[in-house]
Design a protein around this nucleic acid. Structure first.
Length: 428
RNA sequence: GGGGGUUUGCCCGAGUGGUUAAAGGGGGCGGACUGUAAAUCCGCUGGCUACGCCUACAUUGGUUCGAAUCCAAUAGCCCCCA
């Protein structure tokens, strides 16, 4: 029996957007451990922070004693969910899909426990769809889908009204996802599907299908989408999505993303994405209101998230990098430390000889490092006091850099302005 | 097919023969302030080892001591007549 009231917990975190039958669902969850599933689209080899919310949702169910199923859409991914998409999607190639599924699966393992009584399951709907013949599918599943109802779904209507139109393939997407629910219900006793609020149409389609095909009542719930206070989707930066894969988004960049969440959004993120408890949450909310300048909540959010996704060492390197990049002196460093701290920073190789003799002229160095497009731009930066070598302001236009200006064995750290870093590497 | 207009730096937009590398605004980049925020204020914003030189106002050629500014041709855009 679950020790804490899960629905209550989800409620205060704001994770419940819509539920098909809340009293019924509550009774079900209280009676005995249940199985719940959420589907994930394998559109890339890594998950991004948008999917993290769903994974945390599954995790919360698991911690309350239920069994989570993370369903990777190997089959549905071949079709493409038209929900919220303004245009027909390009189909992913088979190999691409395989690679994506492998990458995504690996990441899911750190969110869910695959051991114990309520071990999570990782399934791929391709496994049961691949052998299904078209004729059989139409007879079993298609027969139970009134076109009138399908036409009423928001995802379909939106596209039919637009110039982009909707192909038969994407129109059929709903059937596939609905059938997943029936399959999981039959094979794994799964009675609950969750998802983002944009999935409401697909979720309810599955519930209808289960009633028609199995004569069973199953349940659906959706979580709100992770959006900023001005309505945009979270997890996007100018340079693209924020990924969970450290190859795509370094721990430092990941940490910074959360650190920079606005005051308006920070508490929501903590509630949705972390396991920070009510008591601490309230304290942080209070701090944000009374002393926003300290960024207490942002700091806590960034720490929690980075530690959870990238582990202790990931967090440490993110913290060290942040400390160094925002003001710290750079001296007595070694190459390894610098490479770690400046993992995201562009670098240029230069010949070691440039530092010998007269040395390398700073103006030239800033150009070489890519921080200035021309000598004039570099000169201006220096004149304005916006040029730094190893985080120390350059004041002399005619300064020449020599070996003693290296921050470590082979690296020199250049900076223009507050945040623009570049490295020059002088390998031997 | 005939007539008229327009073309300026990253963008918008002044400038109609002589301190014009070209007003003003936007954007961008720095600096100060701040909370790694927002707002605000200040500076910079063609190139060059640089108080000078070079290249620039659609393109090419011309007039002139001197042109973004005048002329001609070409191209793009816009409008009117047929």
């Amino acid at each position: 029996m679950p020790e804490k009231d899960l629905i209550e917990e989800l409620r205060w975190r704001g994770l419940i957007h819509q539920v098909t039958d809340e009293p019924g669902l509550k009774k079900l969850l209280d009676s005995q451990p249940q199985t719940i599933y959420i589907g994930f689209d394998p559109t890339a080899t890594s998950l991004h922070v948008g999917s993290m919310m769903q994974l945390m949702l599954l995790r919360r169910f698991q911690q309350a004693g239920h069994r989570p199923i993370a369903l990777v859409g190997g089959a549905t991914g071949m079709i493409g969910d038209p929900t919220g998409k303004s245009e027909e999607r390009n189909l992913l190639s088979g190999e691409q899909l395989q690679a994506n599924i492998a990458g995504v699966e690996a990441q899911m393992r750190q969110f869910l426990s695959f051991e114990g009584d309520n071990a999570a399951l990782l399934l791929n709907n391709f496994d049961w769809m691949k052998g299904y013949s078209y004729l059989e599918f139409l007879r079993d599943v298609g027969k139970n889908f009134p076109v009138g109802t399908m036409m009423g779904k928001e995802s379909v209507r939106a596209r039919l009204g637009s110039d982009a139109g909707l192909s038969y393939t994407e129109f059929s997407y709903m059937l596939l996802q609905a059938y997943d629910f029936v399959h999981l219900c039959r094979e794994h006793g799964c009675l609950i599907q969750a998802g983002g609020s944009d999935q409401w149409g697909n979720v309810t389609a599955g519930i209808d299908l289960a009633r028609r095909m199995l004569g069973k009542q199953v349940f659906g719930m959706t979580a709100p989408l992770l959006t900023t206070s001005d309505g945009r989707k979270m997890g996007k930066t100018e340079s693209g999505a924020v990924w969970l894969d450290r190859q795509r988004t370094s721990p430092y960049a990941f940490y910074q993303y959360w650190f920079n969440v606005s005051d308006d959004d920070v508490m929501k993120c903590i509630a949705y994405l972390t396991e920070i408890e009510r008591e601490e949450y309230d304290a942080l909310a209070e701090m944000t209101a009374s002393d926003p300048g300290r960024n207490t909540a942002q700091k806590r959010l960034a720490e929690w998230m980075t530690q959870f996704v990238h582990g202790e060492d990931g967090l440490n390197s993110a913290l060290k990098a942040s400390k160094t990049l925002f003001g710290g002196e750079i001296e007595a460093m070694d190459d390894a430390m610098l490479n770690e701290i400046f993992a995201d920073v562009p670098s240029q190789e230069m010949a070691r000889e440039a530092l010998s003799g007269e040395g390398l002229w700073v103006v030239e160095a800033f150009q070489q490092a890519g921080l200035a497009k021309s000598g004039g731009e570099a000169r201006r930066a220096i004149k304005d006091g916006g040029a730094y070598i190893n985080n120390q302001r350059v004041t002399d236009m005619n300064r020449h850099l020599v070996e003693s200006d290296l921050a470590s064995e082979t690296v020199m750290v250049l900076r223009k302005g507050r945040k623009n870093y570049a490295l020059l590497r002088f390998s031997r």
